[in-house]
Structures are given as structure tokens and as C-alpha cells.
Simulated assay, not measured.
Amino acid sequence: MTIRNAEPKDAARILEIIESAKLSIRALGIDQWQNGYPNMESVLSDIENGIGRVLEENGEILAAAAVYVGNEPTYDRIYDGAWLTGNNTYGIIHRIAVAPEGKNRGAASAMMKYCAALSREAGVSSLRCDTHPGNVIMRHTLEKNGYRFCGTIYLEDGSTRVGYEKTI
């Protein structure tokens, strides 16, 4: 498996993977990603901003995510807990999605390891991520990869998410 920057030619495949992930999330009975987001606009924005990544195996894209080092404004406040660090800059993974044929093959974990390596290279000492409280699959993946539950955050639209952080 290799991870590379996403290119405009990858956009349709990335959106296909995201749409499949939306179905899986809907099957969990939760509303995450059920309002039209992420969409082609967000995929193209990630590519344009240089944060879109794809994981390939034998030339086939199996996973995609927005991976970068920076600051997420919705992480500025956390409730019913605390971040592990007071860092203002950290590694971030958003919009991670794995194709059905990539599931249970370590694709999501590989993307998280890539984010950790990117973060180390940038000189930051932690990674943050969030997900819907009911997204048990993502929560398990985060915990399996050394992330710790830190508390509740709220998105700009008021949606509740659970925040995770990992020190590196």
C-alpha cells in the first residue's frame, strides 16, 4: 500500500468511496455525512489545497482522507473532558473513507500512520481527530491506533462529535 497526494483525476473515485462510506454510516443509524457532505466540492477543495490523500494498492485507490498539519477551529473548545496536550498545531485527519474492498486490510490504519509521520516531520507532537459518537467503527479504529477519547466538540452547525487525540 502506498499513500500519495490526490490528483484531480482521482476525484470521481474518491467520491465513489465516500458515497459507499455514507451508506455504511447510514446503516449504523447515525446522521453523520447524511446531509450531502462530503461531496465533490469538498473532494476538489482537498485536492486543490494539497491535503487530499489517497491510499493505493496495485494502482487501485482503496482509501482517501484529508490529512494535514494545522489547527482545527472546532477543536478550540472541548467539553466534558480535555485534550491531552495544549498544542495549537497538530496533525489532523478528516473525511477518511475506505472502499469496501479495502476494509479489514489496514487501509484506515495506514492512513493514520501516514498522518503521524507527516506530523513528526512537521515537528508537532500530537494528532487530533473527531467522529460522530455513534460511529463505533471509526471510534474502534482510532482507539486501535493509539488515539484516546478526550471529550465532546461541536461543529459549526452545532452537531456533536467526540474528539480524540494521540501523542507522538
Rank of each mutant, 00 (worst) to 15 (best):
R13M: 03
R13Y: 00
I14E: 05
I14H: 07
I14D: 01
L15T: 05
L15R: 07
L15C: 04
E16Q: 12
E16L: 08
E16K: 11
I17N: 13
I17D: 11
I18G: 02
E19A: 08
E19L: 14
S20E: 15
S20P: 00
S20R: 13
A21E: 11
A21H: 03
K22H: 06
L23V: 15
L23S: 09
L23A: 12
S24R: 14
S24Y: 03
I25Y: 08
R26A: 15
R26C: 09
R26E: 14
R26G: 07
A27H: 10
A27P: 02
A27L: 10
A27S: 15
L28K: 11
G29A: 08
I30D: 13
I30R: 10
D31N: 15
D31A: 14
Q32S: 01
Q32V: 01
W33C: 09
W33Y: 08
W33M: 11
W33Q: 13
Q34T: 07
Q34W: 06
N35Y: 03
G36L: 10
Y37W: 02
Y37S: 04
Y37H: 13
P38I: 01
P38Q: 08
N39P: 10
M40F: 09
M40G: 03
M40C: 06
M40N: 07
S42I: 14
S42Q: 11
S42Y: 02
S42K: 07
S42E: 10
S42V: 12
V43G: 12
L44D: 13
L44E: 15
L44G: 01
L44F: 04
L44W: 02
S45T: 14
S45H: 09
S45P: 00
I47Q: 07
E48Q: 15
E48T: 14
N49Q: 15
N49T: 06
N49A: 11
G50E: 12
G50C: 12
G50M: 11
I51D: 03
I51P: 02
G52M: 10
V54C: 06
V54E: 04
L55M: 12
L55S: 10
E56N: 01
E56Y: 05
E56F: 02
E57M: 06
N58M: 01
N58G: 03
N58L: 00
N58T: 06
G59A: 01
E60F: 00
E60S: 08
I61E: 02
I61C: 06
L62W: 02
A63I: 03
A64N: 10
A64R: 00
A64I: 01
A66N: 02
A66C: 07
A66W: 04
A66T: 02
V67Y: 02
V67K: 00
V67F: 04
Y68F: 15
Y68R: 13
V69Y: 07
V69G: 05
V69T: 11
G70T: 06
G70C: 03
G70F: 06
N71V: 02
N71I: 01
